[in-house]
Design a protein around this nucleic acid. Structure first.
Lengths: 351, 351
DNA sequence: TCCCTCTACTAAACCGGTTTAGGTGGAGTC
DNA sequence: GACTCCACCTAAACCGGTTTAGTAGAGGGA
């Protein structure tokens, strides 16, 4: 029993294939009972239109693309994508769309990927993640005429809509939480300044501090990796006047930073409070468990997919409002030390 | 300037579209110079055959699928997939194939996914990951006639080839490393007994111990999650005669276990040695850095993709030999305590 | 010269849908 | 009774490739 085609259904229902097509795309021009009869016949035969054939005749790929441009090493411990993709998928599958995934080693290769996806007509639209400030991709995609949705903090980008959870409330919540605990010297280990979500979290930290009237603590530029997070932490702890709290731009750096502090015998949260961002599974299971910011990444993926499909179909944007991220308080943040303890770097390492 | 079609190329080269097709699929029946002329013309026009149209006429999807059936939560911190996908992609793209990704919440939904992918003809083959002992998927895929490659430890599976790095040497290396350090009571925190890679790592641990003549230490079944890894660790440490070393089936559980030990004031590796599996980025940046087993996941992905394409094209299997995993020794493993210290659970917690 | 074979190529069918132009029958109108 | 109009449906073209059947022309052998 080979797979049925539209012809089988047409024959079985005693109509032309055109009629079957009309019925399945519920387009006008069929009497209600003919339509029902066709659908019933199709159901009986277990027939659904072939995306391959549809793709060719509607001149659409019926797929969207996600190009992840990170060296796999950096990508490895990233908790974002799996959840995001789950959300994207749940939306796409309802509309007969599929998700094409590419992982390319470097940023440059990404352009190549987009060009190919577009040129070969493999996809009808793409997601753009990890946006850089002054990123050339939106312009490239505009030039290619490939609809795109930018995944990340909203950006006054002329080309494409951005769908993202605003970082600011989450970071602000972390800062306010720390301020409420009496901290007054709150540092930030930031993502790369060239990346939009690195920058936006940094700015959120800065404005949150200003709002509370506190001076900005030290801020170290980092790159979201554990390695760099550890280095930044060492740098902060080596300061003559080290911070009593550090807000990290992601969990990975925070966990690495936590290890650095612990290895120096610095009690967390007794002498140093730490917060992460992303709320990874592991964050809850390090010692001490990590205070972090949790956002609904699945919902985010769903919203981004919905927007992209709208864009492809040239429908107006429906308003999606993503819930703001929430702060999950765990044991890595606590009251600020009452009086400054001995210089942190002189603490006895316990390794 | 809209995209060119095969007709444009045919006209420009002064041949029929059939000739262009022959040239591009380098099939016999064209004189060398005609072939060259056609290819040159196509190059000039920037034309490449449309996968959409090819897919329809060759009755192939020119895509393969990967269904990941884990709740996004569990998936979040898994370092395996990104690297694996990177490897898969690098192979697929060379053959004009694309990767379709689906993330479904539960194991059951996976069957549904495969059925749909197959029924709609979206893919020509699929990867099967996270295989269960007695997994129904290979049989399902055989029934659907959808070529598949099982990603994971080889299995005497009648249906489909398996491509995987053998767990045994890596786990054995970890065990031998610990034995060499003088440990004689080596526990294992295992993956689920129902999962093939959970079981295979467990067996590797068991046989490695037997080979050295040591008795099996305690073994706790777990589920690869941080939560369960922590619980298993607590259970082990609560034993009347706790192990001096624990071999974990993955890094996530090992890191969580490390946190449990630390929180109880147990010195790692002074009183307890710990090894992970997978060598995640974070493993090198916890305190103490984690000894782990590292395998070439990208190469693995490449090999799996190559095998799947061979299967789809009904070509014989070329032999792929993946390098065995290697043990990366870091500070979480050290010499066994000389004489049994005070009962571990009575150590003073340092939180 | 005729026939045969082989090479190089073309025309047309085909994959399985969508879409468009057109056709038929019945109701409504004068 | 002829004319228009509309609702419903069909036939055929089309998407852009691949594949098959068939043809023209060159070369070889009797």
């Amino acid at each position: 029993m080979t797979r049925h085609t539209i012809n089988d259904v047409a024959r079985a229902a005693g109509v032309s294939k055109g009629a079957v097509s009309l019925a399945f795309n519920n387009r006008p021009g069929l009497s209600p009972d003919t339509r029902e009869r066709i659908l019933a016949t199709a159901r009986e035969l277990g027939w659904t239109p072939s995306p391959r054939a549809r793709a060719l005749s509607v001149s659409r790929a019926l797929a969207v693309g996600l190009v992840v441009a990170r060296p796999p090493e950096t990508l490895r411990s990233d908790p974002f994508f799996p959840s995001f993709i789950a959300g994207v998928e749940s939306e796409l599958s309802q509309h007969g769309y599929a998700l094409l995934l590419q992982v390319v080693p470097e940023h440059d290769a990404e352009h190549q990927s987009y060009r190919r996806l577009s040129h070969e007509g493999r996809v009808d639209g793409v997601f753009v993640t990890d946006l850089y400030v002054d990123d050339a991709r939106p312009a490239l995609l505009a030039e290619l005429g490939l609809p795109a949705v930018i995944v990340g903090p909203a950006l006054s980008e002329p080309f494409w809509p951005a769908v993202g959870v605003d970082d600011a409330p989450g970071i602000a919540a972390a800062v306010e939480h720390l301020v409420g605990l009496g901290h007054s010297r709150i540092a930030h280990v930031a993502g790369p300044r060239e990346m939009v979500h690195g920058r936006s979290r940094r700015e959120a930290w800065s404005t949150a501090l200003h709002r509370t009237g506190l001076p900005e603590g030290p801020c170290i530029d980092s790159d979201f990796s554990a390695e760099a997070g550890a280095a930044a932490t060492r740098e902060l702890l080596d300061l003559a006047d080290p911070p009593t709290a550090i807000v990290y731009a992601n969990d990975l750096m925070a966990i690495a930073g936590l290890a650095v502090a612990t290895s120096r015998g610095i009690d967390v949260p007794g002498r140093l409070s730490i917060t992460g961002y992303e709320d990874t599974e592991l964050g809850a299971h390090v010692q001490p468990p990590l205070t972090s910011v949790c956002s609904d990444v699945i919902g985010w993926g769903r919203a981004a997919a919905r927007r992209l499909l709208e864009l492809i179909d040239q429908r107006p944007a429906t308003d999606v409002s993503l819930p703001p991220p929430t702060l999950v308080v765990r044991a890595s943040s606590g009251p600020a030390p009452v009086h400054r303890a001995t210089h942190p770097t002189t603490g006895t390492p316990d390794t």
